[in-house]
Every structure is written in C-alpha cells, then in structure tokens.
Simulated scan of single mutants.
Amino acid sequence: MRKEVKQAIAGLIMVSPSFLLLLIIVVIPIVQSLISSLGNDSGGYDLSRYQFLFTDKGMRSNIIFTIKVTLLSCALVLLVSYSMALYIRFSSGKLVDWIRKTYMIPLFIPGVIATYGLMNLLGNHGWLARLLMPLGIVLPRIIFDEKGIIIANLWFNIPFATMLLSSALAGIPASIIESARDMGAGKLRIFLRFIFPLSYKTFLVALTFVFMGVIGSFTAPFLLGANSPQMLGVSMQQVFGVFQEREQAAAMAFFTFLLCSVLGFFYIRSMAKEEAANG
C-alpha cells in the first residue's frame, strides 16, 4: 500500500469520531426536523407549516422581531467589543489593566442568575428605581421588551467577542503600526488599511458566534421579553410545549437553522476565498 493511501486512511480514521458526533448531534436532527415540518394534518407532506410562518400575523411579527433583535444585538456587541479590544491593545495604564482583569467575569456567571440580576436591577421596582425615586427620577421601562433582551445579549456576548478580537489584535505586529505612523498615516487610515483587514477573519468568527447565540437564545428572551412579539426560541417552546404542535415547532426550528445558514454560507465563502488567495 502506498504511503499516500495509508495517510489518507489514517486521516479518515482520525476524523471519523468528530464526523460521527456531528452526524448524530447535528445532521440527523436537522433532517428529522425537516421531514417532520413537511407533515400536514391529513397525513401527507406539503409546505403548509412554512406558509403559516409568513401568513400568520403573530408568527410574522415574531420572525421580524427576532431578526431585529439579533441584528441590533450583533451590531452593538461588536461595536463595544471591538472598541474595548482596541483600547486594551493600544493603550496602557491602570484602567486598561483593570479592564483586562475584569471584562471576562460575566462569562463565569450562569445565564439564569445574570438574567435574574438584571431583573432586580432594571425592573420597575428594582434597586436602581428605588435609588432614583428620592431624587424624583422615574426610571423608564427598560426590561420586559426588546431593550431588556438586547441588554442581556450585551452582557452575555461582549466578554467572549472581546476575548476573540483582543487575541487577533495582539497578533498584529507593532512594527506595522509604527511603520504606518512613520509614513504619516492617521489613526483612521491605519485602522482601515491595516488593523481591520488583519483582524477581519476573527471579526467574522465573532459575528458568527454572536449571531448564532442571539438568534437561538431562550433564557433571556423568556424572562426579559414581552408576551408579544417573541423571539423564535420562546415562540417555538410555546408551540411545542403548550399547543403541542410538533410539526409547526419543527418548521420553526428548521427555519431558524436556515437563517443561521445564511451567515454560515458567507463565513465559509469568505474563508474559502482567503484560503485560495493564500494558496
């Protein structure tokens, strides 16, 4: 047997556990959800479940609300995280050291506990409202609508995104920045020409993880969101657990998967183009 064939067989053996795990945990449930979502009340198969997603007013509102909250959360998370990562990378002092030591703390707080803390902090009768009451300041409604969900998403995702982006920025050689400054390039030009292109791959990874986490979230939308409209995760749970409509819940799950696949497609295509350029 040739050496190349042996290496190919060894490679297949090494990746087979990961492939089997992916097949069992991801691929098979997706296929089962698709088949289940195509079932109708008469025992046949059609697209009536998906048609309901776009013709029912409540479902359509949930989809629009989910996309809106997800996009706003991603934009704010990446804006704050990138700004924080830039500050940590290119600044120094006690404040930078303090941020570097503390920004990871939210990652170690369970989501339910963090959500409960936000409810006690920002609720109409929370301790922030009680502190402001003697000053004659009435705290506006912050949680139990889309603002509460977005605030929770910021809490959950900023530390992780900052960690990824900080690692990418730390890998940019200081000589590149110094050479650009010596050539007279300003801060904005250095960022657009050097810093962002060199950290774009990690930025896309952070965007992908934040998008997937927000669009499929349940705890914060369930506890901090309004009764209507709802995030798809909360609506899916009600359709499946309360109304016992298994096929409709499967259609919602597969539709959520398709939304995630759109971003996944752009991510894979971007990585493929980069690999082709490097090759």
Results as ranks from 00 to 15, higher is better:
residue 123 G to H: 00
residue 186 G to A: 10
residue 117 G to C: 07
residue 179 S to K: 10
residue 129 A to Y: 06
residue 108 F to W: 08
residue 154 L to T: 10
residue 156 F to R: 15
residue 180 A to Y: 05
residue 141 R to G: 12
residue 164 L to F: 15
residue 106 P to A: 10
residue 137 I to V: 14
residue 110 P to G: 05
residue 136 G to L: 12
residue 106 P to W: 04
residue 166 S to H: 09
residue 155 W to G: 08
residue 106 P to L: 09
residue 168 A to E: 00
residue 113 I to S: 05
residue 104 M to Q: 03
residue 141 R to E: 13
residue 122 L to P: 00
residue 162 T to K: 06
residue 168 A to V: 02
residue 145 D to T: 10
residue 113 I to D: 08
residue 136 G to P: 08
residue 173 P to R: 10
residue 183 M to L: 11
residue 182 D to Q: 12
residue 181 R to N: 09
residue 156 F to A: 13
residue 111 G to H: 10
residue 112 V to Y: 13
residue 187 K to E: 06
residue 135 L to I: 06
residue 104 M to G: 06
residue 119 M to S: 14
residue 161 A to K: 08
residue 137 I to P: 06
residue 173 P to T: 07
residue 134 P to A: 14
residue 107 L to M: 15
residue 150 I to R: 02
residue 138 V to E: 14
residue 107 L to S: 11
residue 165 L to P: 03
residue 153 N to M: 15
residue 115 T to Y: 04
residue 183 M to Y: 09
residue 182 D to V: 15
residue 165 L to H: 04
residue 108 F to P: 02
residue 167 S to F: 10
residue 169 L to P: 00
residue 134 P to S: 10
residue 139 L to N: 10
residue 135 L to E: 12
residue 116 Y to K: 11
residue 142 I to L: 10
residue 189 R to N: 14
residue 127 W to H: 07
residue 187 K to I: 06
residue 172 I to N: 01
residue 155 W to H: 05
residue 177 I to Q: 06
residue 114 A to I: 05
residue 113 I to Q: 07
residue 150 I to N: 03
residue 106 P to H: 08
residue 175 S to C: 07
residue 165 L to V: 07
residue 118 L to H: 03
residue 110 P to S: 03
residue 123 G to A: 09
residue 120 N to E: 05
residue 128 L to K: 05
residue 141 R to T: 13
residue 123 G to I: 11
residue 162 T to A: 05
residue 188 L to E: 08
residue 171 G to D: 15
residue 126 G to R: 06
residue 151 I to S: 02
residue 138 V to Q: 12
residue 128 L to T: 01
residue 157 N to P: 12
residue 108 F to C: 03
residue 158 I to W: 00
residue 176 I to C: 03
residue 180 A to M: 11
residue 114 A to C: 00
residue 180 A to I: 00
residue 186 G to W: 08
residue 128 L to F: 02
residue 179 S to P: 01
residue 154 L to D: 05
residue 149 I to P: 02
residue 155 W to R: 08
residue 170 A to L: 11
residue 177 I to C: 01
residue 159 P to G: 01
residue 114 A to T: 03
residue 159 P to N: 01
residue 178 E to C: 11
residue 142 I to K: 01
residue 166 S to P: 00
residue 133 M to I: 15
residue 142 I to Y: 06
residue 139 L to C: 12
residue 146 E to N: 13
residue 165 L to M: 09
residue 140 P to Q: 09
residue 181 R to T: 01
residue 187 K to H: 12
residue 134 P to D: 13
residue 189 R to Y: 15
residue 113 I to P: 07
residue 117 G to H: 13
residue 108 F to A: 06
residue 178 E to T: 13
residue 173 P to C: 07
residue 186 G to S: 14
residue 154 L to Q: 04
residue 120 N to M: 14
residue 140 P to C: 10
residue 134 P to K: 11
residue 163 M to I: 10
residue 128 L to M: 07
residue 133 M to H: 15
residue 188 L to V: 15
residue 107 L to N: 15
residue 119 M to L: 08
residue 179 S to V: 14
residue 126 G to L: 03
residue 153 N to R: 13
residue 133 M to G: 08
residue 138 V to H: 07
residue 156 F to I: 09
residue 108 F to V: 06
residue 155 W to Y: 04
residue 159 P to H: 08
residue 105 I to F: 13
residue 122 L to E: 03
residue 112 V to P: 13
